[in-house]
Design a protein around this nucleic acid. Structure first.
Lengths: 134, 134
DNA sequence: ACGCTTATTGATAATGATTGTCAAAACCAT
DNA sequence: ATGGTTTTGACAATCATTATCAATAAGCGT
């Protein structure tokens, strides 16, 4: 049976009060800074549960951290990432959302989330690398 | 100055000969299995370079591994991945291809590649997890 | 072909995020 | 309040990746 603990609530609230994605480590630090004695492992478990139940989205940052976000439909967007300098531009992908859901459903998948990110070289790095390659 | 070594060639070829995404570790194992004495660190470096120059795409798997794929337009497709059991279905995303190019261009990005992968729970795992959650 | 300079390699240590362990504490139906 | 069971948390363990650094080898000029 699933029990309700103040720790889980604390994680849920901290996540709700955060704008955008945050790592488990950062969320733990944030909670500690607020005086909560919650353990790191517990934060990981709580976030994992939230992601499993669909209350939170998770994605992997380019450097391998897992990032979490309260699952609100508002503010969903994707990224255009410079493969060289890491510069990131947020992009809208409305037309892709429906597509992802449809494809998932067609194959019997549920709780579909998607990773839609575009990598490229930003204008600056395009010039930069062209010079280096010489 | 950039030098050409048989190691870099080996990595490039191994990646070309692989369908879909593969992790650095797996690629290293594969090379070893083929009798190559190439070092693990070298595989990481080579893959990083390939990703930087745009010869390879990279994405983060849900469990935190970096996955690489030869950047070829042939056989280009995307994946529908079960977040629980890892089952993978290849999917077409023609309508998304053009979108990615357009968005990249709009922001001055060149050499645009994209990562479009949909994660969800496959039919089996949907049932499985529903049972567990009880 | 020869040597020189310097990028590259590779074995291994270091790092850092995440997960496993397990006794102690907390939850909740009774 | 009690008992059975889940959850917690400190810490160890794991695993991918990166840093280190001496040894090697690529490519240049000769």
């Amino acid at each position: 049976m699933k029990r309700n603990t103040w720790q889980r609530e604390a994680v849920r609230e901290a996540l709700d009060g955060t704008d955008g994605f945050i790592s488990a480590q950062a969320l733990h630090s944030s909670l500690h800074a607020s005086g909560s004695p919650i353990g790191l492992a517990t934060v990981y478990r709580a976030l994992g549960d939230l992601a499993t139940t669909g209350e939170a989205d998770s994605l992997q940052s380019p450097d391998g951290e897992a990032l979490y976000r309260a699952c609100s439909t508002t503010g969903h967007h994707h990224h255009l990432i410079c493969r060289n300098c890491g510069r990131t531009v947020e992009i809208e992908a409305d037309e892709v959302e429906a597509w992802a859901q449809r494809v998932a459903a067609e194959h019997g998948f549920t709780r579909a989330a998607h990773v839609v990110d575009v990598f490229g070289l930003c204008a600056d790095c395009t010039v930069l690398l062209a010079a280096e390659a010489r």
